[in-house]
């Protein structure tokens, strides 16, 4: 039985996992998706990328090292699919929705001027990715039955995530009419509804990452996205009592030795986490582990399922 906070999160249709690079976004997104899939939900795990040929970090996290991302959803386990959101797939999907005949969209995508425009104009790549994501969230297997109960997005790092979040509103101001305006309004309705969309911010138990996570959460909230919570990843195990810690710190400070670096890190982690908790209330802590790949994803999924 899931804790109420996790239940609330997984009842959304679209969960955006974001944070600074190196905070374990991808692994955490995969673990969240695995929890939902194990509850019988049909889950699509999405990543963002410019080109499909490159190695997919998401598939690597799921144990498929070296695999490229796929533009169409591919199975990754029971009830679980992965997909790569590319600008081009979004542009094509948009044209197909807008133009009366599918083949016209394909022809338009081949038209050099349009292709050049879409790849050159600032923000059109991001718009394509967003459109593709929302298309998959809204996809139905039959009338009123969604194709995926939940789409989990391994979102781009901090700066780009903020730009993404504010994109539909800016777009609506620039192009209020036509199908783009309509798409922007639909996008906003979905992104701003806390029942539909929730963001999870990942961070590390270190000073600067905590500061940046707090800024990111604030920025996302300013774009009217519901920030469900902050996850501190790679939290080191601290075996020491306060007295032991202070005695050891004094000793290792006077003499360079192995182990001193870990001690310092434990002290920094305690301070950073205390500050994070003071700012946002409860923080989900994911312990540091030796394992990697799918095993790590499963271990974190277990943590998430147990979280209270």
């Amino acid at each position: 039985m899931l804790g109420p906070r996790m239940q609330e999160l997984l009842s959304a249709r679209f969960v955006i996992v974001t944070g600074k690079g190196g905070t374990g976004k991808t692994t955490l997104a995969a673990a969240l998706a695995q929890v939902a899939a194990s509850l019988g939900k049909r889950v699509l795990l999405a990543e963002v990328g410019p080109e499909p040929e490159a190695r997919s970090p998401l598939r690597a996290a799921l144990g498929e090292e070296g695999q490229a991302g796929s533009i169409e959803p591919v199975p990754a386990g029971p009830n679980l699919w992965t997909v790569l959101l590319t600008p081009e797939a979004g542009h094509r999907a948009f044209l197909r929705d807008v133009l009366p005949l599918g083949f016209l969209a394909d022809r338009a995508m081949k038209a050099e001027p349009l292709r050049r425009f879409l790849s050159a104009a600032p923000a059109f790549a991001e718009l394509g990715i967003l459109y593709r994501g929302l298309q998959l969230v809204r996809a139905e297997q039959k009338k009123h039955v969604p194709l995926y109960d939940l789409v989990v997005l391994d979102a781009p790092a901090t700066g780009h995530a903020l730009a993404f979040a504010s994109l539909p509103q800016v777009l609506l101001r620039i192009i209020p009419g036509g199908p783009i305006g309509r798409a922007a309004r639909e996008g906003i309705a979905l992104l701003h509804d806390p029942k539909h969309t929730r963001a999870v911010v990942t961070t590390l138990p270190e000073s600067l990452p905590v500061t940046e996570a707090l800024e990111l959460a604030k920025g996302l909230a300013q774009s009217n996205l519901t920030v469900h919570g902050v996850v501190a990843n790679l939290v080191p195990h601290d075996p020491f009592t306060p007295a032991e810690r202070s005695a050891l710190s004094n000793w290792t400070r006077t003499l360079p030795m192995l182990g001193a670096r870990t001690l310092q890190r434990l002290e920094r982690a305690r301070a950073a986490l205390a500050r994070l908790e003071a700012a946002v209330g409860s923080v989900l802590m994911v312990p540091e582990r030796e394992t990697r790949g799918r095993e790590l994803v499963s271990a974190i999924a277990h943590d998430l399922a147990q979280a209270r």
Binding site: E244, R245, L263
Partner: peptide, 23 residues
């Protein structure tokens, strides 16, 4: 090239228990 704590002498402040945890 850093020394391991078990190779070093330590003062009385550092208990055996904490040293065992540091190793």
């Amino acid at each position: 090239t850093l020394p391991h704590p078990s190779e070093l002498t330590h003062d009385a402040e550092v208990s055996q228990a904490s040293l065992d945890k540091l190793k």
